[in-house]
Amino acid sequence: MSDYFSLMFTVVLLSLVVNIGIALYGIFIKPSLVKKFIALTIFSDSINSFAIALGFRRVTGSYPGVAVLSDVPRGVEELRHFSTASVDPLPQALVLTAIVIGLAVYMFLTGLIMLYYRHYGTTRVDAARGGSRE
């Protein structure tokens, strides 16, 4: 059982790494700025998912719970029990703000790409260098 879980969890992490690789390939190779933009969003989402996966943990005997108290605790023992059965909330808190800030920055990028298209009439990145590279 334990081996099965670790194997599957490793597969999740490796898929995230592969996603990072594919998205980086798109950012570097694709000439279209819109495609670069889409690849950039996938890249940052994968990095964020990696942080979430690092905050996950296992609990003996059951599945871990969310980092939210379901009711007002009545004693210190209840809190102790809560902390032994909950996942790490810190990466979630860091990723939470990063996603919303990322959206605002992407919107700024969108405005820049629109202005680029107005100026050059294309979204190919090599237009700014005065023509196609090929």
Binding site: G55, F82, S83, L90
Partner: peptide, 16 residues
């Protein structure tokens, strides 16, 4: 160790 059984100390402090 990924998906460890142990909780990091700072996370335990926050939760408790």
């Amino acid at each position: 160790p990924l998906a460890p059984y142990a909780l990091r100390d700072i996370a335990r402090a926050y939760l408790e």
